[in-house]
């Protein structure tokens, strides 16, 4: 166990070093990148929504689940909230957005847990459903920002945009939740072996539903910022959002099979993607090449991770073989 912990730390350090490397390389090639205004207002601000949703999504992926509907939960809650705000004022908008996020997450969780349908199928279907509802209700028109979302999307606090503060607070909360609480341990346990966790007396259904609800709520929170930042949103803006989030999480070293991963990895993954996005833009590299770079970075990370993982598995295998023998002799 101690061995495993050591290995985990080295992986995150490695990831951190890669980020520093990318950061320095871009800074050397184009010094304009290093201006604090650019770093804060462009590099970090553009990734906040994706980074925020990646936090609860990491929890879900660690339990062995997945949520493909995140982008469309955001769209649906922004749509309904925006419409409510347009006719009943800002407060109605705030409440409706949060409730929508909660209900969407709850629906995902209930179908996955109660009907025992695989998370991928469920969230794929609800992805269509949420997209369709927001498209149907908005009649295909744009949704416009209102007072509260403008506040969330454009205010600065001590020279740093408000949404970055929110992201930092959320990141700290989720990091503590995953690494320092019993709930975090339970999540890993569910991801590693669901049946064993259930027999250990943990109500896995309840935990899973809570995770999807949290994910829905964070999506709603992110949708305020999103709507505020863009001032108007159309129903199809959430397409590919899920894939961007999953890219970050996988880059951060979380195994898509569940049971392995860390919040710090996800946060560093967010930083790497943010640096690449804005850095390549500064260097005047066309968006198509940026996609290739993203893909290549992801593939390199995946292969590197697979190599490390296979080695770790070999070590684990020997341990598992040794354990039952002891139990038998006892």
């Amino acid at each position: 166990m101690a061995n495993k912990k050591k290995f985990k730390v080295t992986f995150n350090t490695l990831l951190f070093l890669i980020w520093i490397l990318i950061f320095v390389a871009i800074a050397v090639i184009s010094p304009a990148f290093l201006s604090p205004g650019y770093l804060v207002n462009v590099m970090l601000r553009n990734i906040v929504e994706i980074g925020m949703v990646a936090l609860p999504m990491t929890l879900i992926i660690i339990t062995g689940g997945i949520d493909l509907s995140v982008g469309n939960i955001m769209i649906l809650s922004a749509t309904l909230g925006g419409l409510a705000a347009a006719s009943y004022g800002s407060v109605a908008g705030i409440i409706v957005t949060l409730v929508t996020g909660l209900v969407c997450g709850l629906l995902n969780g209930l179908i996955i847990v109660k009907a025992k349908i695989s998370p991928m199928v469920t969230t794929l279907a609800t992805m269509y459903l949420y997209l369709g509802i927001s498209r149907g209700i908005s009649k295909g028109n744009s949704i416009y920002t209102y007072e509260f979302t403008t506040l969330m999307g454009t205010t600065s606090l001590f020279g740093v945009p408000l949404q970055i503060w929110i992201y930092i607070i959320l990141a700290v909360i989720f990091t503590i939740l995953l690494s320092k609480t019993t709930l975090g341990r339970k999540l890993y346990s569910i991801g590693l072996n669901e049946n064993a966790t259930q027999y250990a007396g943990i109500d896995i259904g309840k935990i899973k539903i809570i995770m999807y609800v949290i994910c829905g709520l964070v999506c709603a929170l992110a949708s305020y910022i999103w709507l505020g930042r863009f001032t108007s949103i159309k129903f199809d803006a959430g397409t590919n959002f899920n894939m961007k989030v999953i890219t970050i999480i996988v880059l951060g070293g979380t195994s898509i099979n569940g049971g392995i991963g860390s919040m710090v990895g996800t946060i560093i993954g967010t930083l790497i993607i943010a640096t690449l996005n804005s850095g390549l833009t500064v260097m005047n590299i066309p968006i198509d090449v940026q996609t290739i770079v993203h893909g290549s970075v992801l593939i390199v990370a995946l292969i590197g991770y697979a190599v490390i993982n296979n080695r770790a598995k070999k070590k684990k295998l020997i341990k598992i073989e040794a354990a039952p023998k002891q139990a038998a002799s006892m």
Binding site: Q290, H294, N310
Partner: peptide, 19 residues
């Protein structure tokens, strides 16, 4: 590489889209 299919094809999606 024994990478789960959904992740692997997600990565190749970006390559195809970029090229």
């Amino acid at each position: 590489t024994k990478i789960p299919a959904i992740v692997a094809t997600l990565a190749t999606t970006q390559l195809f889209q970029g090229v």
